[in-house]
Nucleic acid binder design. Structure first.
Lengths: 349, 349
DNA sequence: TTGTACGCGTTATCAC
DNA sequence: GTGATAACGCGTACAA
């Protein structure tokens, strides 16, 4: 026997009012008399009435879930943001539709389509697997769905971007390596094309690295800049290339922690000790960075802040059903110095 | 100007048939003539018609998303299962509604309510934050929604359980420590009450540990069994307690990797080297386990298999719109020996 | 302040 | 084979 759920009509009959009144009570309309409001609310609670989100959505032309697309759920950086988002949205009663695009544009585009077709009430993009053109097409047709991108700088009307000051962070961490008196400081960058290449921080981090070196009067050696893919495998391979350079680097700054971990593995495979033979630094401050041996020096991304800001922005915009409030905010990052970058003969500072 | 999306009616007008026919074509009904089918399909593609999931759901009384509740998204064990699920469901066009219950019963119950109210088409439970009573109440009312639990043994009609052979795994890993000639082998268990306590493996792992010790003719010392909470913090604290025991253990088996990491940190804080002063083993084989120094000996959970099995089971049941197929399957686990458990004076085996 | 009636886009049950 | 048409449960003009 299939349990038919309680509907507006059921409640209306039970307290002898019209469904319009019940609807008004449920949706907190102002025009209901306090007396009937109480009576209706009582029956609502008593019967355990819950509005049918599908029917509601059909009428209002909008769903009840917030869509999120991340490029790699196994990267803790994304997980922590999703977790923050998830908890913030629980408070508002919104669900979270999660998509993992697996670093592929095709999947990212597909995900976006699924989300919009599922009539989400808002979208958060973390990572870089949704192409600008695709996003623009959807936002043009669906102006009522606020879109928030994290660490990606879309130039689209109504799309908010939460960024971090990657240039400054990269400058600071490179500067730190210089202060530790490392002589040949290499960098592992994000990918130059394809997914990840348009991450806001990608180019910025290279810029900061270059600025720090120039400022210290050093030459930027192109052979010391290796391309990665923001993943463990890419970090490992990039490190292998760096180590094969004659006059190999004595310090490496990787554009994210996952690549730094891969680089650390490559260093070990080559029989090098970190940091004694080669220093290492990453970016993101994912939780395991502190647990490694040696613990990883890194740039802490304000993950919780980013997640919270995205949630807040979303929650503020959802009621208006419009992406009026276009925000472009830049968050500061913090250098976290740990073992992996400490020179055995520390500089006098 | 708000873009009104293409509806069945639009398509119907364009090719001069009724909406019923279009609906039939879209839903692959058999009774449409090949000729009209092609004509309609052409217009569908041409106009870019996409069925409105909300309207469809309203009619069919079921949604299009699969709900997932995990107890902690920052634990890679859960992440990897979610990721597998996410990819499997993409193939079928189902979305993934994700909830993080943050190790709290109240939130887990809330999550479950949200999912059922959102008219999910199936539910996957990973971890142990949904109480048996709560789940039973919902499944009784909603028989059409298949529910699959991973590593939790619910005794509820229509709820499938995917388990692992934890007793055997715990026996094997304890046996391994015995073979390494460790003398005082301790264990960090899951919580005895509250969230996590009813994880299928919790008691099983203790049983396996005990059996191995008994079989080796050893006495199970109650002071060497410490309670944790399946999290980093709990592992660290449990280890601190174990180290304060007079005649401290020389090997510790933690019920999951997160606790093993916490225990490793505690050992370090106490100035002990792993594995020289104290050996360590975990459970799950989360990705970082291999990256630690020393790399962590652990029991590999078949995460991908579990995720894939859940997805497959779900996909098989969804079309029938019923949880007829109640499955209770037990997966084997594998011992993965790494540095953290190798005695400096290895046993002759 | 409350009730009536229509429409949201779809599926399903009939007649034809 | 195909086409009307009645639900599905809700929000909301508009009437009362």
């Amino acid at each position: 026997m299939q349990h038919r759920s309680v509907t507006l009509r059921d409640v209306a009959e039970h307290c002898d009012v019209s469904i319009a009144t019940v609807s008004a009570v449920v949706n907190r309309a102002t025009w209901v008399s306090e007396e009937t409001r109480q009576r209706v609310q009582g029956v609502v609670d008593g019967l355990g009435y819950r509005p049918n989100q599908l029917a509601r959505g059909l009428k209002t032309r909008r769903g009840y879930a917030v869509g999120v697309i991340v490029s790699d759920l196994t990267n803790p950086f994304f997980t922590e943001i999703v977790r923050g988002l998830s908890h913030a949205l629980r408070e508002t009663g919104n669900s979270l539709l999660l998509c993992d695009s697996d670093h592929q544009f095709e999947i990212g585009d597909l995900n976006l389509r699924m989300l919009f077709e599922g009539h989400v009430v808002g979208v958060v993009l973390v990572g870089d697997t949704v192409r600008e053109d695709t996003l623009r097409a959807y936002t043009r047709r669906q102006r009522r769905v606020p879109v928030i991108a994290i660490e990606r700088d879309y130039d689209i009307d109504g799309v908010s971007c939460l960024l971090t000051d990657s240039e400054q962070g990269a400058y600071t961490i490179t500067r730190h390596l210089i202060d530790q008196e490392f002589k040949r400081i290499a960098m592992i960058t994000g990918p130059h094309e394809g997914p990840g290449s348009t991450t806001y921080g990608r180019a910025q981090r290279v810029d900061g690295y270059r600025r720090a070196l120039r400022e210290a009067g050093r030459v930027v050696d192109a052979r010391l800049v290796a391309e990665g893919n923001f993943r463990y495998s890419g970090g490992r391979e990039a490190m292998q290339r760096l180590l094969s350079v004659s006059d190999r680097p004595d310090a490496v700054f990787a554009s994210n922690d996952m690549m730094a971990l891969g680089a650390m593995e490559a260093a070990r495979e080559a029989g090098l000790r970190v940091p004694d033979d080669i220093a290492l630094a990453g970016w993101d401050d994912i939780s395991v960075a502190a647990l490694m041996t040696p613990a990883l020096t890194t740039v802490a991304m304000p993950k919780r802040q980013l997640g919270a800001a995205a949630a807040e922005l979303l929650i503020r915009q959802i009621p208006h059903g419009a992406n009026h409030e276009e925000v472009r905010q830049k968050f500061p990052v913090d250098l976290v110095v740990r073992q992996s970058s400490l020179s055995s003969a520390p500089a006098r500072i």
